[in-house]
């Protein structure tokens, strides 16, 4: 039997919240919980659904069909690269859907998970984090679909595809930074929940998902890059099928998202301390 001295395993609760580093340490200790909660979500999601996985495939394909019909067939989108509109739009949608899943589910995760969090202790930021993992499963399926689509359209990926995980990580960071802020804020201000559909439904038009950045007048394109998701979407396209040129503007989004995430975590931690008394 493994002997640990009791002093090593000491937990201490006072009115003082944990320090930031101690909090991150706790999140690390409870990292298995991210997987457990994500597994639970996935099991529940697919339990009792006849079509199961098929839904995850049908949803993005339906979206693609609708947008293809409107923006390519009815209104021909100009300046679409050689790969064809389907690949162009779908690679943008893949990134956007991942982002919107994290924002939707993550910002609501504290409220939807309160039944659990009132009974079991774990750092609460685990809740939005676990949604990233669930979203990543959908993302993987979407990416596979995209690969099939690229194969059909005869679009070949280059060496840059190796950098895709990096852009996926940036994508997750951007989503998480919004989710962490919103989830912490919704505890006190429930009406902020209504802001989420705005971000997701209107944000997609401020991000070059369906249109190439080149149709935006030069004077305004810098404005597009203030949105960190622009860099993510363009980055996906660059590393998947060599769209446009790599630009350090991609990194701008990352830095912005990262700062937002750090600040969000600090804020979240402050809220978390008294969260259970407010929920």
């Amino acid at each position: 039997m493994k002997l640990l001295s009791l002093q090593e395993m000491r937990l201490r609760y006072t009115k003082q919240p944990d320090s930031f580093s101690a909090y991150l340490g706790k999140v690390w200790d409870y990292r298995y919980m991210i997987v457990v909660l994500a597994t639970r979500d996935l099991k529940i999601k697919y339990a009792q659904t006849v079509l199961g996985l098929v839904w995850t495939i049908i949803q993005p394909l339906t979206g693609l069909a609708i947008f293809y019909f409107f923006f390519h067939f009815l209104v021909a989108m100009p300046k679409v690269p050689e790969c064809g509109y389907a690949v162009f739009a779908f690679s943008g949608m893949t990134a956007w859907y991942f982002f919107s899943y994290i924002v939707y589910q993550g910002s609501n995760s504290l409220i939807s998970g309160q039944e659990l969090s009132q009974k079991v202790y774990f750092p609460r930021i685990i809740l939005p984090l676990s949604k990233v993992v669930v979203g990543a499963v959908d993302l993987t399926i979407s990416l596979c679909l995209l690969m099939v689509l690229m194969l059909v359209m005869n679009v070949k990926p280059g060496w840059q595809i190796l950098l895709l995980p990096g852009f996926v990580a940036v994508n997750a960071t951007v989503g998480l930074s919004v989710a962490v802020w919103l989830s912490a804020l919704t505890i006190r201000y429930r009406d902020l929940q209504h802001i989420v559909p705005y971000i997701v439904n209107f944000g997609i038009w401020l991000t070059p998902v369906f249109f190439p950045t080149t149709i935006v007048p030069d004077k305004l394109s810098w404005f597009l890059y203030l949105n960190p998701m622009t860099g993510v979407v363009e980055g996906y396209r660059w590393c998947l099928w060599g769209y446009s040129e790599f630009t350090w503007l991609y990194a701008f989004g990352l830095i912005l998202a990262f700062l937002l995430l750090i600040a969000g975590t600090v804020f979240f931690k402050r809220q978390e301390h008294h969260m259970m008394d407010v929920l």
Binding site: L6, R10, L11, Y13, H274
Partner: peptide
């Protein structure tokens, strides 16, 4: 650890 105390200390060894 679900809710913090308003005053006082709790220590758990284990």
């Amino acid at each position: 650890g679900i809710t913090p105390p308003t005053e006082g200390v709790v220590e758990i060894f284990g």
